[in-house]
Simulated scan of single mutants.
Amino acid sequence: MAAHSPLIVGIGGTTGGSSSTETALRIALAAAEALGARTLLFGGEAIAALPHYTAKSSTRTAGEAALVTAVRDASGLILASPGYHGNVSGVVKNALDLLEETARDARPYLTDLPVGLIATAYGWQATGSTIAALRAIVHAFRGWPTPFAAAVNCRLSRFDANGAPSDPEVAEQLALVGRQVADFALRIGAPLDIAS
Rank of each mutant, 00 (worst) to 15 (best):
M1K: 03
M1T: 13
A3M: 12
H4M: 10
H4D: 13
H4G: 04
S5A: 13
L7F: 11
V9S: 08
I11V: 14
S18C: 06
E22M: 02
A24T: 05
L25F: 12
R26D: 11
R26F: 10
E33V: 00
A34M: 03
G36H: 04
R38M: 06
T39H: 07
L40Y: 05
A46M: 03
A48W: 06
P51H: 00
H52Q: 08
H52R: 02
Y53C: 09
S57D: 15
T59E: 15
A66G: 11
V68M: 05
V71K: 00
A74Y: 11
A74F: 13
L77M: 07
L77V: 08
I78P: 07
H85S: 05
G86R: 00
G86Q: 03
V91P: 14
V92T: 07
L99D: 05
L99V: 01
E100Q: 13
E101D: 15
T102R: 14
A103H: 13
R104E: 13
D105S: 12
A106S: 14
Y109A: 05
Y109S: 01
L113N: 03
P114E: 04
V115D: 07
V115G: 00
V115T: 01
T120C: 15
A121V: 04
Q125E: 14
T127V: 14
T127A: 07
G128M: 09
S129W: 04
I131V: 15
A132N: 11
I137K: 00
R142Q: 14
G143M: 00
W144L: 12
A150R: 00
R155C: 09
R155F: 14
L156G: 10
L156P: 10
F159V: 06
A164G: 02
E169H: 13
Q173S: 13
A175F: 10
L176R: 13
A190M: 05
P191C: 01
I194D: 09
S196T: 13
S196R: 14
